[in-house]
Write a protein that binds this DNA or RNA. Structure first.
Length: 237
RNA sequence: GCAGAGUGAGACACUAU
C-alpha cells in the first residue's frame, strides 16, 4: 500500500498542502514498520530539507526501525542527533532504549539508562518495567527480576497482561514451576479487574503454562492446564 | 471562541528463515 500512500502524499503537495510533522512521522513509521529503510530515510531527509523539525516520535520511529534491522549503531546515532537537536527522550523513548539494551544482554547499559531516566525526572511505567523484567528473566537472573517486580508494585504500577506473561514465561523457562503457579494464581485473581481487550483475555498465559509444562515433561500438569483453559472457554491456538 | 479527531515503546505460543 506504499504506492497509495505516496500518491496521496504527492497529491497533498500539488494541492498546496504542505506536509507537517504528523505527515512525516506517519510515513516514516510506516516505512520503518514495513522494513522499507531506504524509503524511510528518504522521507526523513525530505522532512529535514523542508524545514520541518523532527520530534520525539520521529526519532522513536527511526530508532525502532533500526532496532528491528539490528542496526544498533544507527540507533545510537539517531539518539545522538536527537540530543543535539535538544529533544529529550520521554518514557516511550527510554522504554525503547531499555528494551534494546536488555535484548542485547547489555544489562549494565540498561540499568544505566534506567538511572538516567530517573535522574531526568522521567517516571518509568509498566512498559518500561516489562522490558527490564524480560531482560532479567531471559538472563536467568530471577532475584533481580523479582526485585524489579516488587519495586514496580511499590510504585503502584499495576502489572498488565504483558507483564504477567513475561514473569510466567521466565519462570517457565527456568523450570520454577511453583513460582510460575503463584504468579498465575495472582493473574487469575486480578484478570477480572484488567481491561479486557479480547474475548478471552487470559489465553496467552495458558499458552505459556502449557508450553512450560510440556518442555518440563510435566505432562499431567500440562494436561490440567489445557483442560482448565478449555473450561474457562479459551480457544486453544 | 470552544470541543473533538490523525503519528512512536514492552510479553507468549503457532508458522516461515
Amino acid at each position: 500500500l506504499y504506492d497509495r500512500m505516496e500518491r496521496v502524499f504527492e497529491q497533498m503537495q500539488t494541492a498546496g498542502c504542505m506536509p507537517d510533522v504528523f505527515t512525516f512521522n506517519t510515513m516514516i513509521d510506516a516505512y520503518g514498520k514495513g522494513l522499507q529503510y531506504a524509503k524511510m530515510e528518504h522521507a526523513y531527509r525530505r522532512m529535514l530539507m523542508s524545514g520541518c523539525h523532527p520530534d520525539i516520535r520521529t526519532y522513536s520511529s527511526l530508532m525502532d526501525a533500526y532496532r528491528k534491522a539490528g542496526l544498533y549503531e544507527d540507533v545510537e546515532a539517531t539518539l545522538k542527533s536527537m540530543c543535539t537537536a535538544g529533544c529529550k527522550p520521554d518514557v516511550k523513548a527510554y522504554s525503547l532504549l531499555i528494551d534494546i539494551y536488555g535484548k542485547r544482554g547489555r544489562l549494565e547499559k540498561m540499568e544505566a539508562t534506567l538511572k538516567e531516566m530517573q535522574l531526568a525526572g522521567c517516571r518509568a511505567n509498566v512498559v518500561t518495567y516489562t522490558g527490564i523484567l524480560d531482560a532479567y528473566g531471559k538472563a536467568g537472573l530471577f532475584e533481580q527480576m523479582e526485585e524489579v517486580w516488587l519495586s514496580m508494585i511499590n510504585l503502584h504500577l499495576k502489572p498488565d497482561m504483558s507483564a504477567y506473561v513475561t514473569m510466567l514465561s521466565a519462570y517457565g523457562k527456568g523450570r520454577l514451576f511453583d513460582k510460575m503457579e503463584m504468579v498465575f494464581e495472582e493473574l487469575k485473581a486480578v484478570a477480572k479487574t484488567m481491561k479486557i481487550v479480547g474475548p478471552k483475555p487470559v489465553c496467552p498465559a495458558y499458552n505459556v503454562l502449557i508450553d512450560a509444562y510440556g518442555k518440563g515433561k510435566e505432562i499431567r500438569k500440562m494436561e490440567e492446564a489445557f483442560e482448565a483453559m478449555q473450561q474457562t472457554g479459551h480457544q486453544p491456538s
